[in-house]
């Protein structure tokens, strides 16, 4: 059964149709990479999965259960408690980290444990330390986010999401705001999670990550899923012209492999 799924999702911003009927289902332990040019709707899909953006049409399922209550006009209404319950089961990592600057690294991780999962301070600190160790930042527990590099901040953000023991992790262009030489440390952490069996949905422009880590690659174009399949199928043998153009644009200035 799928951990998380969306069916026939439509989303408009103003008079612009961003998503035009998306079906996506993510199985336990699976790593799905969403690719597509900017404006293709890939970030919006991710934000729909934890209902940070509410869809105009369509359904969201967590462990097969449809979320929200039906309204007479056919749209769905989501209560605050249900949204919070969904979001604590779905971890999210943002492009700009969204760490809390007034809290130390460990307090950033503890706040969700304390205020959402009702851990005691001692339990929360212990868990925060464990997850910081997991992303290789145990020695930064008492530092403030603004003293860390971009890559370290993103790893703290990953630890913060992981500490909630989510059923699925969402990565929204997690490496796009980083200096090029910091990208790989975050990608390595993400690959490690994938290998440990974490269920992940990843929006990225890192084709190498998609090729080496993804179980499934989904290519979006104009608010629809154009094609999906194994990394080899989509990245090496795409069948649609937009996919080929996208891949060409992303690999045009590649170094020749030795």
């Amino acid at each position: 059964m799928s951990v998380i799924a969306v069916r026939n999702i439509h989303k408009r911003f103003g008079n612009q149709d961003v998503l035009k009927g998306i079906d996506l289902s993510v199985a336990k332990g699976e790593t799905v990479v969403l690719l597509g040019s900017s404006g293709s709707g890939k970030s919006t899909i991710l934000r729909t999965l934890n209902l940070l953006d509410l869809p105009d049409e369509g359904d969201v399922f967590l462990h097969g259960n449809k979320l929200g209550q039906a309204r007479p006009d056919g749209t769905r209404r989501y209560r605050g408690g249900e949204l919070r319950n969904l979001r604590r089961r779905v971890g999210m990592v943002f492009q700009h980290f969204n760490l809390f600057p007034h809290l130390t690294v460990e307090e950033n991780i503890m706040i969700g444990l304390r205020r959402v999962l009702n851990y005691s301070i001692t339990q929360a600190r212990e868990k925060a330390r464990h997850h910081l160790d997991h992303v290789g930042l145990a020695e930064k527990a008492l530092a403030f986010p603004d003293t860390l590099s971009g890559g370290q901040r993103q790893r703290v953000a990953i630890a913060r999401a992981l500490a909630m023991d989510p059923d699925v992790m969402l990565f929204d262009e997690a490496t796009s705001a980083l200096d090029p030489e910091r990208v790989s440390e975050v990608l390595r952490t993400m690959r490690q999670l994938s290998q440990e069996g974490t269920t992940m949905v990843v929006v990225t422009h890192e084709l190498g990550f998609a090729y080496n880590v993804a179980d499934r690659v989904v290519f979006l174009h104009g608010g629809r899923i154009l094609e999906q399949g194994t990394p080899t199928e989509i990245l090496l043998h795409p069948t649609h012209a937009p996919t080929r153009e996208f891949l060409h644009a992303h690999t045009e200035f590649r170094l020749p492999s030795a």
């Binding site: 979001r87 779905v90 969204n98 760490l99 809390f100 205020r115 999401a161």
Partner: peptide, 12 residues
């Protein structure tokens, strides 16, 4: 983004 960071953790 601070609001979204908190929302994503499940805070009210």
């Amino acid at each position: 983004g601070q609001w979204e960071g908190g929302q994503a953790l499940g805070l009210s």
